[in-house]
Amino acid sequence: MTPYARRGVHGQTVEALARRVLSGELPEGSTLDLVALQSELDVSLTALRESLKVLAAKGMVDARQKRGTFVRSRSDWNLLDADVLRWQFESDRTADADSALLRNLAEVRGIIEPAAVRLAAERRTEDDLAALDTAVDAMGQDGSDAAHAVEADLAFHRALLAATHNELLERMEMVIESGLAYRDRIVHSSPHSQDPVPAHRAVLDAVRDRDPRAAEAAMRALLDQAGRDLDRIGGSDTNTEGPTGQ
C-alpha cells in the first residue's frame, strides 16, 4: 500500500493529521479547530475536510452537530487498518509502546500464520511455489541491503497467505506486513544479522511436500526464533547470537 504522503497534498494532509493524533498532539476527545489547522497545514478547507474523512473512515475522528470534529477514543480506532498500524510505528512513541504493539502483532501472527501455512501446504499450486522460491532466493542474495531483505521477507509471507487461496486470509497480509516491516527494519539493520534463509526454507520445503503438520511446526519455529531475535536486540536476552529476519 502506498503511504498517503506519496499521494499529493491530500495524502500529505492525511499523514500530518494522523501523526498529530498518534503523538497525542491532538489528544483523544479534543475538538479540532479546523480554521487553525487549515492555516498551520497551509491547505484549503476542502482538502482538510476530505483528509478528515479518511481518518473518520478509520475510526480516528468523528463530527457531531454542536460539538464539531473531534478525536475519538483509541478503543474506536480501526487498529487492524494497515495505515493505522503503520502510523503507530512511525509516530513519536515510547519504546514500551512500540514493544507492546510488536508483542500484540506477534501474538496475531502466532495465531494466523501457523494455521494459514497448513492450508498453504494442502492447496499450494506451482505458481505459489514459484513465488515462494523467488522470495527465498532474494533473501539469500549476497550484498543485499536492509531494504531488500525486508521486501524479500514480506514477499515470502505474502506468498504464503496467497497460497491458502482464502481471500480473507490473503487480506491479513495488510495487518501482518505493517508490524513485520517495522520489525524487519530493526533486525536487518543489526550488524550481526544471521542468514534468514534456513528457517524460511524449512517452511517452504514442508509446503512443497504438502505436509501440513511439518509446515505448521516449521512456521512456529520461525516465529519463536523471530521473537527471540527481537528480544536480543531490545537487550532483554543475553544470548550473543545475532538476529535472524523472520
Rank of each mutant, 00 (worst) to 15 (best):
D184L: 15
A218Y: 03
V136K: 03
R171N: 06
R72Y: 01
R103D: 15
M60C: 08
H10P: 07
L169V: 05
A215L: 05
P198M: 05
L132M: 15
D145T: 04
Q246C: 05
L105F: 01
E216N: 11
Y182T: 00
V9F: 04
E170G: 07
P27H: 12
V136A: 06
P191L: 05
T125S: 15
Y4T: 10
S178H: 06
G234D: 15
R6D: 11
V14D: 13
A120K: 04
A57H: 10
H148E: 15
S178I: 00
A138T: 01
P243M: 06
R93F: 02
R208I: 03
L55R: 09
A82E: 15
T244G: 09
N78S: 14
Q246F: 01
E167D: 14
M139Q: 14
A47G: 09
G242Y: 02
G140A: 05
L80T: 12
Y182M: 05
A57E: 15
R220G: 05
F70D: 12
L132D: 13
T164M: 05
S91C: 12
A120M: 03
P191F: 03
F70K: 08
S144P: 03
T69A: 13
A82R: 13
A36R: 11
S91I: 01
R6Y: 13
L45H: 06
L132H: 02
R7Q: 10
F156V: 05
A120D: 07
T46W: 02
R93H: 09
S144I: 00
P27I: 01
A95W: 06
T134L: 03
G179A: 12
K53E: 14
G234C: 04
G59W: 00
L79I: 06
A82Y: 07
G8S: 08
V9G: 01
T238M: 11
R72Q: 14
R208T: 14
I111Y: 13
R103K: 10
D133L: 09
D231F: 00
L22H: 04
A138K: 00
I186E: 06
E90Q: 07
D137Y: 01
Q246M: 02
D224T: 08
R210D: 11
M139Y: 02
M1D: 10
G143R: 06
S44P: 08
R118N: 06
S44R: 07
E113I: 13
A206I: 03
E177D: 14
L169D: 13
R6A: 13
E151Q: 11
L80D: 15
A146C: 09
S51Q: 08
T31H: 06
L223T: 07
S75N: 11
E177T: 10
R232N: 06
A215S: 12
E126M: 08
L41N: 10
M219N: 09
G234H: 15
H10W: 07
H165F: 03
R171V: 00
R208E: 12
E40C: 04
S190H: 13
L230H: 07
T240A: 14
A131H: 07
E40H: 04
A138W: 01
